[in-house]
Amino acid sequence: MGTALFDGTEQLINGLMYGCFYALVGGGFTLLFGVLRRFNLAYGSTIMAGAYAGLIPVYLFKAPVLVLFVTTIVVSVLVGLLVEFCCFRFLRKGHELAPLMTTIGMLIVIDETIVHLTDAVGLKYPAPFGDESLALGPFLIRPDYLAILVVSIACFSAIFWLMHRTRFGRAMRAVAERPEAAQILGVSVRRVNVLTFVLTSAMAGIIGFFAAVSVGSARPEMAAWLTGKGLVVMVLGGLGSFPGAILGGLALGVLEFEAVWFLGSSYRDILAFSILFLILMVRPGGLLGSRPA
């Protein structure tokens, strides 16, 4: 195999695995947007709050990683419910832009609370998957990325099952497509909204755990990064389209890895945004979006 081809393949593998992580983040945004038709800029902060909170039992009484993982999810869900209560519950339909502001306010509150409590220092995260890459054939594969691959596939399957095989999923889709009609048919829109927040916030906990594990620390800069990537993936795939988010995440992951390898990191974001711009020009509804919102 030629070197360029070999290197390209190595980056492709890494890009696909990392793309799964992007897909999870974009998926969280997409689920919320799909049901609420609003977007939640505090989602990245929810993720970060969970990641930091997971460390509390570890620092206090050296709890094992499983406790950390569970704490992360539980706290994310609680923060998610707080976001729902403060930023969405009391806003009636028709105020499309208000949640944008309330969630920006929430983002500031959460981020600054964490900065205030930790002096903006990143905190060490345990490495449950070891910190040496596995040599699979000629390639070096990161164990935490393998775990992300497995967990994200599990997550996506669970969500597809939930959306298409359960009562809650049907209610969710009904609310997403026709909230008024769903209401008439006896679906409680508020209940679906709250449950959607619980679901996406649990995802936020999983994302937060893996985001912190992949860099070895929980850091105050996580929120802005995750929000940025999540929005790009969601729009690239098509608003409200869950398969679109998966495709968008994988595409962004591969693109970034190949760009860094072949062009250098200076061109990574320029290239990513240029391609996003071009795709939206050609397909104004994203890769798998049905029509412009």
Partner: peptide
């Protein structure tokens, strides 16, 4: 401006 709404915001 072929794109709209949130798509335009991100573009």
């Amino acid at each position: 401006l072929r794109v709209r709404g949130l798509y335009l915001a991100i573009a």
